[in-house]
C-alpha cells in the first residue's frame, strides 16, 4: 500500500510530533537490524509479538495510525492506490472527493 513511502513522507512533514518521529525511527532501525523484510509471515509474527508487547510498543503506537492512513486514506495522500483497499473492504468514502491534498 505504499506504506513505507507514506511513513517516510510523514517523517519529512512538520505535523508529526517529535516523540512519534523518534519512536518510528528507532523502530525502523530495530526492524532493519533484524532483517525483518526478509522474514516469512510466521517468523515476522514470532518476532513482532514479544517486541510489540515490550519495547516496541511506542513504535506500534506511532506507526499504526500512519499505516491505517496509508491503507484507508484518500489516494491523493499517496497510499491506497486507486482506492483498492476501499473496494476490497466495500467501504464508501463519501462525496464530494477532494481534488488535491489541502
Amino acid at each position: 500500500m505504499r506504506a513505507a513511502a507514506y511513513v517516510d513522507a510523514a517523517l519529512a512533514a512538520d505535523w508529526l510530533d517529535a516523540e512519534a518521529c523518534a519512536a518510528l525511527r528507532a523502530g525502523a532501525a530495530h526492524l532493519a537490524d533484524h532483517d525483518f523484510a526478509t522474514l516469512d509471515a510466521p517468523a515476522r509474527d514470532a518476532f513482532l509479538r514479544p517486541w510489540l508487547d515490550g519495547p516496541g510498543r511506542p513504535f506500534y503506537r506511532a506507526a499504526l495510525p500512519l499505516l491505517m492512513e496509508a491503507w484507508l486514506g484518500d489516494p491523493i495522500h499517496g497510499g491506497n492506490p486507486d482506492g483498492v483497499v476501499w473496494a476490497w473492504l466495500g467501504h464508501d468514502p463519501g462525496f464530494p472527493r477532494p481534488a488535491s491534498p489541502s
Binding site: W15, E69, G73, D74, I76, H77, G94, P96, P98
Partner: peptide, 12 residues
C-alpha cells in the same frame, strides 16, 4: 469547498 477527506478534515 467542503470535501470528504478524512486525513485533511479529521486528522490534520
Amino acid at each position: 469547498d467542503f470535501v470528504k477527506d478524512e486525513i485533511a478534515e479529521c486528522r490534520r
